[in-house]
Write a protein that binds this DNA or RNA. Structure first.
Length: 253
DNA sequence: AATTTGACCAACCGCCTTGCT
DNA sequence: AAGCAAGGCGGTTGGTCAAAT
């Protein structure tokens, strides 16, 4: 990153963007592409900070944005991913084409959080709120609505998980230890957030797609075997046939 | 009709990371 | 290696609008 020359700066405009500002930014990017955000306000003739321009572009003006309300499937996926990776909105949004981290975050805070609370689920931990009246022993995990409780939606076969695997261990209301795996794409440092992680066509990409498909959240109680390749890469090999879904939550009424 | 409440969205803030000088 | 600026990200705030009271 090269340093921009320092000099007196006009105070940046704040507040809502005007249609004129939107047009200037859109036209500039259409003509010149994305350059340094700090230069764009000056080049485009906008009295805003580079940060503000970046945010406006990413969250509102980008042509590939979906403006429609989130579907039930998207909502299910957000809940599932949040239960695994928490408030990593950028990662979650990367699984929802056309959605922004800000949009997902807003939807979570404004809508899903309240729905989960009404269902007696703590939105932070995804566990039942401790309330004697609601503890009836049923599984309370939030899984995609299209997965029925006790079903095994996965196909049999072996899946080799790359080093980028993240494993989380949780305890369910019945004190059953289980693990949940999230297969993360092998994203190079130069990749941009929001790009299609499966674009490389690599094995990792295929696994990522399986996760995005919303059909692979498994009980990992069964042990996995760990191998290390010549290059030092660690692989965790598990037999999918050994994994079971741990339960499903009722749909939002 | 006026007020309140809730949902949704846009924007800003502050902190952290990255990369250049 | 240190300092600095830019970029990225999650948290938060504030505005708007529609439905409910």
């Amino acid at each position: 990153m090269s340093k921009a020359p320092r000099g007196p700066r006009k105070p940046a405009t704040r507040g809502p963007w005007s249609t004129e500002e939107d047009a200037k930014l859109t036209n500039h990017i259409a003509k010149h592409g994305l350059g340094r955000w700090s230069d764009i306000p000056r080049l485009a003739g906008i009295e805003r900070g580079g940060k503000s321009c970046r945010l406006r572009w990413l969250n509102y003006l980008r042509p590939d944005l979906k403006r429609a309300a989130l579907s039930q499937e998207e909502e299910d996926l957000i809940i599932q991913l949040h239960s695994i990776i928490g408030n990593s909105w950028t990662l979650i949004a990367a699984c929802l084409p056309g959605r922004t981290d800000n949009g997902v975050k807003n939807f979570w805070n404004a809508s899903i959080k309240h729905k989960l609370r009404r269902r007696g689920i703590d939105p932070d931990t995804h566990e039942p709120v401790v309330d004697e009246g609601s503890r009836n022993g049923d599984a309370q995990y939030i899984l995609p609505s299209h997965l029925e409780a006790g079903s095994n939606a996965c196909s049999h076969g072996a899946l080799t998980l790359p080093d980028s695997i993240t494993r989380y261990v949780d305890t369910d209301p019945l004190q059953l230890q289980h693990g949940v795996v999230l297969v993360q794409p092998a994203v190079s440092s130069s990749s941009t957030v929001g790009s299609d992680p499966s674009g490389s066509g690599s094995d990792t990409g295929e696994q990522w797609n399986n996760l995005v498909d919303g059909s692979q959240l498994f009980d990992l109680t069964e042990s996995s075997t760990t191998t290390t390749t010549k290059s030092g890469t660690t692989n965790h090999a598990c037999s999918i046939a050994d994994w079971k879904l741990v339960g499903a939550a009722p749909r939002v009424p």
